[in-house]
Amino acid sequence: MNAAQEISPVNSSPRRPVDSLDTPVRVSPEGPAPVVAAEPPKLTVKNLDAWYGSNHALHGVNLTVPPRSVMAAIGPSGCGKSTFLRCLNRMHELIPGARAEGTLLIDGQDLLSRDVDPVTLRRRVGMVFQRPNPFPTMSIRDNVAAGLKLNGIPGNHHEIVERTLRQSALWDEVKDRLDASALSLSGGQQQRLCIARALAVQPEVLLMDEPASALDPIATAKIEDLIHELKERYTIVIVTHNMQQAGRVSDQTAFFYMGDLIEVGPTEKIFTNPSEKRTEDYVTGKFG
Protein backbone atom coordinates (compact mmCIF):
# COMPACT_ATOMS: atom_id res chain seq x y z
CA MET A 1 0.00 0.00 0.00
CA ASN A 2 2.96 2.26 0.56
CA ALA A 3 3.60 2.38 -3.11
CA ALA A 4 0.41 4.32 -3.52
CA GLN A 5 1.88 6.96 -1.28
CA GLU A 6 4.89 7.28 -3.48
CA ILE A 7 2.87 8.15 -6.55
CA SER A 8 3.05 11.84 -7.05
CA PRO A 9 -0.29 13.50 -7.44
CA VAL A 10 0.94 15.43 -10.42
CA ASN A 11 0.36 14.01 -13.81
CA SER A 12 3.15 11.91 -15.15
CA SER A 13 1.53 10.48 -18.21
CA PRO A 14 3.75 10.90 -21.22
CA ARG A 15 0.87 10.87 -23.66
CA ARG A 16 0.11 13.80 -25.88
CA PRO A 17 -3.44 15.00 -26.38
CA VAL A 18 -5.10 12.50 -28.65
CA ASP A 19 -7.25 14.99 -30.39
CA SER A 20 -6.51 18.61 -29.95
CA LEU A 21 -10.00 19.52 -31.14
CA ASP A 22 -11.25 18.08 -27.88
CA THR A 23 -9.39 20.64 -25.89
CA PRO A 24 -11.82 23.25 -24.66
CA VAL A 25 -9.22 25.94 -24.81
CA ARG A 26 -10.10 26.95 -28.29
CA VAL A 27 -8.12 29.42 -30.27
CA SER A 28 -10.16 32.54 -30.31
CA PRO A 29 -10.55 34.59 -33.47
CA GLU A 30 -8.31 37.29 -32.04
CA GLY A 31 -5.36 34.98 -31.75
CA PRO A 32 -4.08 32.18 -29.56
CA ALA A 33 -5.62 31.88 -26.12
CA PRO A 34 -3.28 32.88 -23.30
CA VAL A 35 -3.35 29.47 -21.65
CA VAL A 36 -2.85 26.59 -24.01
CA ALA A 37 -2.73 23.11 -22.60
CA ALA A 38 0.63 21.84 -23.67
CA GLU A 39 0.40 18.77 -21.47
CA PRO A 40 -2.13 16.03 -21.97
CA PRO A 41 -5.24 16.77 -19.95
CA LYS A 42 -5.58 15.31 -16.49
CA LEU A 43 -9.31 15.01 -16.81
CA THR A 44 -11.27 14.50 -20.00
CA VAL A 45 -15.05 14.52 -20.06
CA LYS A 46 -16.76 13.40 -23.26
CA ASN A 47 -20.47 13.47 -23.98
CA LEU A 48 -21.42 13.29 -20.34
CA ASP A 49 -25.16 13.01 -19.76
CA ALA A 50 -26.80 12.70 -16.36
CA TRP A 51 -30.34 11.93 -15.27
CA TYR A 52 -32.26 11.98 -12.03
CA GLY A 53 -35.03 9.56 -12.89
CA SER A 54 -36.51 11.15 -15.98
CA ASN A 55 -35.02 14.57 -15.29
CA HIS A 56 -32.24 15.03 -17.81
CA ALA A 57 -29.90 17.19 -15.71
CA LEU A 58 -26.77 17.30 -17.88
CA HIS A 59 -26.72 17.28 -21.65
CA GLY A 60 -23.61 16.05 -23.42
CA VAL A 61 -20.88 17.88 -21.56
CA ASN A 62 -17.42 17.93 -23.17
CA LEU A 63 -14.38 19.48 -21.56
CA THR A 64 -10.84 18.82 -20.46
CA VAL A 65 -8.88 20.01 -17.47
CA PRO A 66 -5.09 20.26 -17.73
CA PRO A 67 -3.05 18.97 -14.82
CA ARG A 68 -2.20 21.34 -12.00
CA SER A 69 -4.87 23.83 -12.88
CA VAL A 70 -8.14 25.02 -11.45
CA MET A 71 -11.38 24.82 -13.35
CA ALA A 72 -14.36 26.72 -12.00
CA ALA A 73 -17.89 25.67 -12.84
CA ILE A 74 -20.31 28.59 -12.70
CA GLY A 75 -23.95 29.07 -13.56
CA PRO A 76 -27.29 29.83 -11.98
CA SER A 77 -28.72 27.58 -9.29
CA GLY A 78 -30.03 24.28 -10.58
CA CYS A 79 -28.04 24.39 -13.81
CA GLY A 80 -26.23 21.14 -13.06
CA LYS A 81 -22.91 22.25 -11.54
CA SER A 82 -23.15 19.92 -8.57
CA THR A 83 -24.44 17.13 -10.77
CA PHE A 84 -21.42 17.56 -13.03
CA LEU A 85 -19.08 17.51 -10.06
CA ARG A 86 -20.70 14.46 -8.51
CA CYS A 87 -20.36 12.52 -11.76
CA LEU A 88 -16.63 13.13 -11.69
CA ASN A 89 -16.22 10.82 -8.70
CA ARG A 90 -19.45 8.93 -9.22
CA MET A 91 -21.04 10.25 -6.04
CA HIS A 92 -24.22 10.54 -8.12
CA GLU A 93 -24.57 6.78 -7.84
CA LEU A 94 -25.55 7.22 -4.20
CA ILE A 95 -28.75 8.99 -5.22
CA PRO A 96 -31.50 6.52 -6.05
CA GLY A 97 -32.51 6.85 -9.68
CA ALA A 98 -29.51 8.92 -10.70
CA ARG A 99 -27.37 7.74 -13.60
CA ALA A 100 -24.72 9.11 -15.90
CA GLU A 101 -23.52 8.15 -19.35
CA GLY A 102 -20.48 9.23 -21.25
CA THR A 103 -16.75 9.01 -20.92
CA LEU A 104 -14.68 10.25 -18.04
CA LEU A 105 -10.95 9.85 -18.45
CA ILE A 106 -8.25 10.47 -15.90
CA ASP A 107 -4.86 10.24 -17.56
CA GLY A 108 -6.61 8.50 -20.40
CA GLN A 109 -8.24 5.80 -18.28
CA ASP A 110 -12.02 5.57 -18.38
CA LEU A 111 -13.42 5.75 -14.88
CA LEU A 112 -17.11 5.74 -15.62
CA SER A 113 -16.98 2.24 -17.02
CA ARG A 114 -18.68 -0.51 -15.07
CA ASP A 115 -15.41 -2.35 -14.52
CA VAL A 116 -14.05 0.46 -12.42
CA ASP A 117 -15.00 0.27 -8.77
CA PRO A 118 -16.31 3.67 -7.64
CA VAL A 119 -14.50 3.14 -4.35
CA THR A 120 -11.17 3.05 -6.19
CA LEU A 121 -12.14 6.05 -8.25
CA ARG A 122 -13.00 8.09 -5.17
CA ARG A 123 -9.60 7.41 -3.73
CA ARG A 124 -8.13 9.13 -6.79
CA VAL A 125 -10.70 11.91 -6.97
CA GLY A 126 -11.24 13.58 -3.62
CA MET A 127 -14.19 15.77 -2.76
CA VAL A 128 -14.89 18.69 -0.46
CA PHE A 129 -18.49 19.61 0.21
CA GLN A 130 -20.44 22.79 0.59
CA ARG A 131 -20.87 22.45 4.33
CA PRO A 132 -17.88 21.31 6.34
CA ASN A 133 -18.56 17.70 7.32
CA PRO A 134 -15.76 16.49 9.59
CA PHE A 135 -16.49 13.30 11.49
CA PRO A 136 -17.88 14.75 14.72
CA THR A 137 -16.89 11.91 17.02
CA MET A 138 -13.28 11.93 15.84
CA SER A 139 -10.38 14.10 16.90
CA ILE A 140 -8.70 16.48 14.48
CA ARG A 141 -5.90 13.99 13.98
CA ASP A 142 -8.25 11.06 13.37
CA ASN A 143 -10.23 13.04 10.85
CA VAL A 144 -7.14 13.61 8.76
CA ALA A 145 -6.04 10.02 9.17
CA ALA A 146 -9.48 8.57 8.44
CA GLY A 147 -8.78 8.02 4.76
CA LEU A 148 -5.37 6.52 5.50
CA LYS A 149 -6.96 3.99 7.80
CA LEU A 150 -9.57 3.16 5.18
CA ASN A 151 -6.80 2.56 2.70
CA GLY A 152 -5.06 0.34 5.19
CA ILE A 153 -1.95 2.50 5.03
CA PRO A 154 0.08 1.38 8.04
CA GLY A 155 2.77 3.15 9.92
CA ASN A 156 3.33 6.63 11.12
CA HIS A 157 0.28 8.63 10.29
CA HIS A 158 1.60 11.49 12.34
CA GLU A 159 3.97 12.57 9.63
CA ILE A 160 1.28 12.50 6.95
CA VAL A 161 -1.17 14.25 9.27
CA GLU A 162 1.31 17.04 9.88
CA ARG A 163 2.24 17.39 6.24
CA THR A 164 -1.37 17.49 5.11
CA LEU A 165 -2.41 19.94 7.80
CA ARG A 166 0.46 22.18 6.71
CA GLN A 167 -0.64 21.85 3.10
CA SER A 168 -4.13 22.92 4.04
CA ALA A 169 -2.81 25.86 6.07
CA LEU A 170 -4.26 24.58 9.31
CA TRP A 171 -1.23 23.21 11.09
CA ASP A 172 -0.30 26.32 13.07
CA GLU A 173 -3.81 26.68 14.36
CA VAL A 174 -4.27 23.09 15.52
CA LYS A 175 -0.82 21.68 16.24
CA ASP A 176 -1.32 21.97 19.98
CA ARG A 177 -4.69 20.28 20.05
CA LEU A 178 -4.63 17.49 17.54
CA ASP A 179 -6.60 15.31 19.92
CA ALA A 180 -9.42 17.79 20.38
CA SER A 181 -12.70 17.07 18.71
CA ALA A 182 -13.05 18.29 15.15
CA LEU A 183 -16.16 20.13 16.30
CA SER A 184 -14.06 22.42 18.49
CA LEU A 185 -12.89 24.17 15.30
CA SER A 186 -14.57 27.12 13.65
CA GLY A 187 -16.48 26.62 10.41
CA GLY A 188 -13.59 27.81 8.26
CA GLN A 189 -11.13 25.61 10.14
CA GLN A 190 -13.48 22.66 9.79
CA GLN A 191 -13.59 23.21 6.05
CA ARG A 192 -9.80 23.30 5.86
CA LEU A 193 -9.78 20.14 7.97
CA CYS A 194 -12.06 18.54 5.39
CA ILE A 195 -9.65 19.63 2.68
CA ALA A 196 -6.81 18.08 4.69
CA ARG A 197 -8.84 14.90 5.09
CA ALA A 198 -9.30 14.71 1.34
CA LEU A 199 -5.63 15.49 0.64
CA ALA A 200 -4.27 12.93 3.09
CA VAL A 201 -4.99 10.07 0.72
CA GLN A 202 -3.11 11.87 -2.06
CA PRO A 203 -5.86 12.19 -4.62
CA GLU A 204 -4.98 13.28 -8.13
CA VAL A 205 -8.03 15.43 -8.60
CA LEU A 206 -9.80 17.50 -5.96
CA LEU A 207 -13.46 18.40 -6.41
CA MET A 208 -14.93 21.25 -4.38
CA ASP A 209 -18.62 22.05 -4.35
CA GLU A 210 -19.03 25.66 -3.20
CA PRO A 211 -16.45 25.05 -0.48
CA ALA A 212 -16.69 28.59 0.89
CA SER A 213 -20.36 29.33 0.57
CA ALA A 214 -21.02 28.60 4.25
CA LEU A 215 -18.04 30.64 5.44
CA ASP A 216 -17.37 34.25 6.37
CA PRO A 217 -15.19 36.45 4.12
CA ILE A 218 -11.98 35.91 6.06
CA ALA A 219 -12.36 32.15 6.08
CA THR A 220 -13.29 32.34 2.40
CA ALA A 221 -10.10 34.25 1.62
CA LYS A 222 -8.08 31.57 3.40
CA ILE A 223 -9.72 28.83 1.36
CA GLU A 224 -9.03 30.76 -1.84
CA ASP A 225 -5.36 31.23 -0.92
CA LEU A 226 -5.23 27.56 -0.19
CA ILE A 227 -6.62 26.69 -3.61
CA HIS A 228 -3.84 28.76 -5.15
CA GLU A 229 -1.24 26.73 -3.32
CA LEU A 230 -2.91 23.39 -3.92
CA LYS A 231 -2.96 23.82 -7.66
CA GLU A 232 0.80 23.45 -7.73
CA ARG A 233 0.23 19.79 -7.02
CA TYR A 234 -3.39 18.92 -7.69
CA THR A 235 -5.93 19.30 -10.42
CA ILE A 236 -8.92 21.10 -9.00
CA VAL A 237 -12.50 21.49 -10.15
CA ILE A 238 -14.46 23.95 -8.06
CA VAL A 239 -18.15 24.82 -8.21
CA THR A 240 -19.03 28.33 -7.19
CA HIS A 241 -21.87 30.67 -7.79
CA ASN A 242 -19.69 33.54 -6.76
CA MET A 243 -18.23 34.90 -9.99
CA GLN A 244 -15.58 37.01 -8.26
CA GLN A 245 -14.39 33.83 -6.62
CA ALA A 246 -14.26 32.01 -9.93
CA GLY A 247 -12.26 34.95 -11.29
CA ARG A 248 -9.83 34.86 -8.39
CA VAL A 249 -9.08 31.17 -8.15
CA SER A 250 -9.51 29.55 -11.54
CA ASP A 251 -7.50 29.18 -14.72
CA GLN A 252 -10.45 28.00 -16.74
CA THR A 253 -14.13 28.61 -16.28
CA ALA A 254 -17.02 26.50 -17.47
CA PHE A 255 -20.42 28.14 -17.70
CA PHE A 256 -23.41 25.86 -17.26
CA TYR A 257 -26.97 26.80 -18.00
CA MET A 258 -29.99 24.52 -17.66
CA GLY A 259 -27.95 21.37 -17.96
CA ASP A 260 -25.91 22.53 -20.93
CA LEU A 261 -22.27 23.44 -20.90
CA ILE A 262 -22.58 26.74 -22.72
CA GLU A 263 -18.96 27.73 -22.84
CA VAL A 264 -15.63 26.80 -21.38
CA GLY A 265 -12.35 28.60 -21.72
CA PRO A 266 -9.68 30.62 -19.96
CA THR A 267 -11.24 32.44 -17.06
CA GLU A 268 -10.07 35.81 -18.27
CA LYS A 269 -11.72 35.29 -21.62
CA ILE A 270 -14.99 34.05 -20.14
CA PHE A 271 -15.23 37.12 -17.97
CA THR A 272 -14.04 39.75 -20.43
CA ASN A 273 -14.75 38.45 -23.88
CA PRO A 274 -17.06 35.44 -23.91
CA SER A 275 -18.08 33.96 -27.24
CA GLU A 276 -21.64 33.24 -26.18
CA LYS A 277 -24.30 35.83 -25.54
CA ARG A 278 -25.72 33.85 -22.59
CA THR A 279 -22.32 33.70 -20.94
CA GLU A 280 -21.93 37.42 -21.30
CA ASP A 281 -25.39 38.05 -19.87
CA TYR A 282 -24.62 35.86 -16.90
CA VAL A 283 -21.17 37.18 -16.07
CA THR A 284 -22.36 40.76 -16.41
CA GLY A 285 -25.20 40.01 -14.03
CA LYS A 286 -28.05 40.41 -16.53
CA PHE A 287 -29.63 37.23 -15.20
CA GLY A 288 -29.02 34.53 -12.66
Binding site: R122, N133, A146, L150, A198
Partner: peptide, 20 residues
Protein backbone atom coordinates in the same frame (compact mmCIF):
# COMPACT_ATOMS: atom_id res chain seq x y z
CA UNK B 1 -23.28 14.63 4.68
CA UNK B 2 -21.31 12.45 7.09
CA UNK B 3 -21.92 9.34 5.03
CA UNK B 4 -21.02 11.28 1.90
CA UNK B 5 -17.84 12.49 3.55
CA UNK B 6 -16.81 8.92 4.25
CA UNK B 7 -17.81 7.63 0.82
CA UNK B 8 -15.97 10.46 -0.89
CA UNK B 9 -12.83 9.32 0.91
CA UNK B 10 -13.19 6.00 -0.83
CA UNK B 11 -15.01 4.17 1.92
CA UNK B 12 -17.17 1.22 0.99
CA UNK B 13 -20.74 1.29 2.18
CA UNK B 14 -19.93 -0.78 5.24
CA UNK B 15 -16.81 1.27 6.02
CA UNK B 16 -18.86 4.43 5.83
CA UNK B 17 -21.34 2.96 8.30
CA UNK B 18 -18.50 1.96 10.57
CA UNK B 19 -16.62 5.26 10.57
CA UNK B 20 -19.42 7.76 10.20
Amino acid sequence: SLKEGALALGATRWESIRIS
